[in-house]
Design a protein around this nucleic acid. Structure first.
Length: 568
DNA sequence: AAATAGACTTGGAAAAATTTTT
DNA sequence: AAAAATTTTTCCAAGTCTATTT
């Protein structure tokens, strides 16, 4: 099978929304599907370096060694300090060690020799010559090329994650009860291949068989396997740049846009619901209000024995909210990925009263909204608009916030501004969206040093500015190093330039600090209608590449030629 | 109507690639 | 040209939501 990307671009967005809709709604998502299957990680290469137990080296068989090496590779991560992680790892490793093994407790094990070995290996890899690196890269690319694309109805479409996950220790987030459990090697026998009925099935690795081969054209995955840790299916799907994913993404924004037509009615209705007799109505009204105003996720039920204890709107418990007199509510809970949501919001007095009532007589661990659930909430939303569900509010509010903030800031943009300055203005608008959606990140490792460097730069420029100003007042008898401009005019113009430079540096520093723990990428990738960004780029003369990386441009080809006055 | 399965989107961290600084 | 900083991509965990089963 030919593996190069197709040069002919499939401009599906030239069709009407109805046509696109009907393509996606069709039971048949494809007529023919042809691909080369998936790529397995390399087999484990034993290194024969022992674990030291009670100070003495213990030789391990390859299987035991492989798992010990997984642990050793994480020696410097935070996981190693966690009891749960160690318990789960030990349970898995102990089983591999078998009964009556020399190693009887994890506490007496020293993995540092393996860790050092891994470090040396990494070093060696880093120290290869650039020719070696290039040659290896090319070889790898050649090898992987066959898996990168699938042929869907004769079109070449990019496949995402065609590399099967290597074995490892499960790295659940937050206080995940399963952290440290052994994620076993996925075998071909675990994998179901989905491929067109008439196509040749890609051969499984020698000595193996596929777990199954199906030809299911109602779905868009090429392979599936069960994640044994969480007992959930995982799929090898198409990349965000594929026409099918992009079509879905486009329609997601179209749906969010059409929420504009009924948002006023929804807001009127939930305000009405706050005063209803039935508690379930009041709960529905308050929950939708939170989802709309605060961009909360719907909050499906989770199994606290099997997963980290995180919540969304419907799963909020009494302990996650507190009343702040006279009319505010304080939220403090762990949301998706155990990211903390902490926010005190002023609310209407009816909402305050409702929440007070919901809390009354309940324990801290009781559900705040015990009379509703995501199903009921989404069912109710369907009465306003086909395809409306809680997540549409997040897309809608994120996009409309970006649109509004950009328009607010656009007045500040002047024609003599540099691209970097304009990008920085875009980022301030983007940041409002990220804050709304609570997209956070760990502070970058280099944050402190990088702020220091900036401060140093500013200081240097300020010292220089003082020298210039001094020189203008009374020209120095002898020239001082470094040399200053000679004429008063050139000094004056230099002063202006330096002042501008200092302002820019200060602005850059401010941005850096404001973005310390805010992640802009998630909203840019998943929530902001790309047409808003592209239209802004056109109006302000900023190259789209400054805001959309190659991958994002590939994801949004349909947005590229939107009019420059596009409004969400 | 509640629980479960299935398929898909969203998410932050880490690795890799690229750019900037020294 | 090496190192450091920054940006982009990859990875895979963790959500949402609909359909199906009990």
């Amino acid at each position: 099978m030919d593996t190069k990307p197709d040069d002919g671009v499939y401009k599906w967005w030239a069709q009407s929304d109805d046509t696109i809709q009907s393509i996606l709604n069709s039971d048949q998502k494809w007529q023919t599907l042809k691909h080369n299957g998936v790529l397995f990680p390399p087999d484990y290469q034993p290194h024969s370096i022992p674990v030291y137990y009670d100070g003495k080296p213990v030789k391990l068989d390859p299987e035991q060694e492989e798992v010990a090496t997984m642990y050793a590779s994480m020696l410097e991560s935070d996981y190693i300090q966690k009891k749960q992680f160690n318990e789960n790892f030990w349970a898995a490793w102990k089983e591999l060690l078998g009964k009556n093994h020399t190693i009887k407790s994890l506490a007496k094990c020293d993995f540092s020799k393996i860790w050092e070995h891994l470090l040396t290996e990494k070093e060696t890899k880093l120290n290869r010559t650039s020719e070696e690196k290039k040659a290896e890269k090319e070889l790898k690319a050649k090898f992987e090329d066959a898996y990168k694309y699938a042929l869907v109805d004769g079109r070449k479409e990019k496949v995402q994650q065609f590399k099967i996950e290597p074995p490892g220790l499960f790295r659940g987030r937050g206080t995940h009860p399963k952290m440290g459990m052994l994620k076993k090697r996925i075998q071909p026998e675990d994998i179901t291949i989905n491929i067109g009925r008439l196509e040749d099935v890609p051969p499984p690795p020698t000595g193996h068989k596929w777990g199954g081969v199906v030809s299911n054209n109602t779905v868009l995955w090429v392979a599936a396997f069960k994640d044994a840790i969480n007992n959930k299916n995982k799929y090898v799907q198409f990349a965000s740049g594929s026409s099918m994913k992009a079509m879905n993404d486009y329609l997601k924004y179209q749906t969010a846009r059409s929420l504009k037509d009924c948002i006023e009615k929804i807001r009127e209705d939930y305000k009405q619901q706050w005063t209803e007799k039935q508690e379930s109505d009041r709960q529905l009204g308050v929950a939708i209000y939170f989802i709309d105003k605060l961009a909360l996720r719907v909050g499906n039920e989770k199994d606290d024995e099997e997963e980290a204890d995180t919540v969304g709107c419907c799963s909020l418990r009494v302990e996650h909210v507190s009343l702040v007199a006279p009319s505010s509510i304080k939220f403090d809970f762990l949301g998706k990925d155990s990211i903390r949501y902490e926010n005190t919001v002023e609310v209407e007095k009816e909402v305050y009263k409702c929440v007070k009532g919901f809390i009354e007589g309940k324990k801290k661990s009781d559900m705040l909204f015990h009379k509703i659930n995501p199903s009921k909430l989404n069912d109710h939303l369907k009465s306003y608009m086909e395809k409306l569900s809680a997540k549409v509010f997040r897309t809608y509010n994120a996009s409309i916030t970006l649109d509004r903030e950009l328009k607010k800031l656009e007045r500040e943009i002047t024609s003599d501004m540099s691209v970097a300055e304009k990008v920085s203005i875009f980022n301030s608008a983007n940041r409002q969206v990220a804050i709304l959606c609570n997209h956070q990140r760990a502070a970058p490792k280099t944050f402190d040093t990088s702020v220091e460097t900036m401060e140093k730069k500013i200081e240097d420029q300020e010292t220089y500015l003082e020298r210039l100003q001094q020189a203008l007042k009374e020209p120095p008898k002898k020239p001082t190093q470094p040399l200053l401009p000679k004429t008063p005019e050139s000094i004056s113009s230099k002063i202006e330039a330096i002042k501008k430079k200092i302002d820019d540096l200060k602005q850059e520093k401010k941005m850096k600090i404001e973005n310390k723990t805010v992640s802009l990428t998630t909203s840019r990738t998943n929530y902001c209608d790309p047409r808003i960004t592209i239209a802004w780029c056109k109006r302000t003369d900023v190259p789209v590449a400054k805001l959309f990386s190659k991958t994002l441009q590939d994801k949004f080809p349909w947005a590229l030629d939107c009019p420059n006055n596009y409004t969400f």
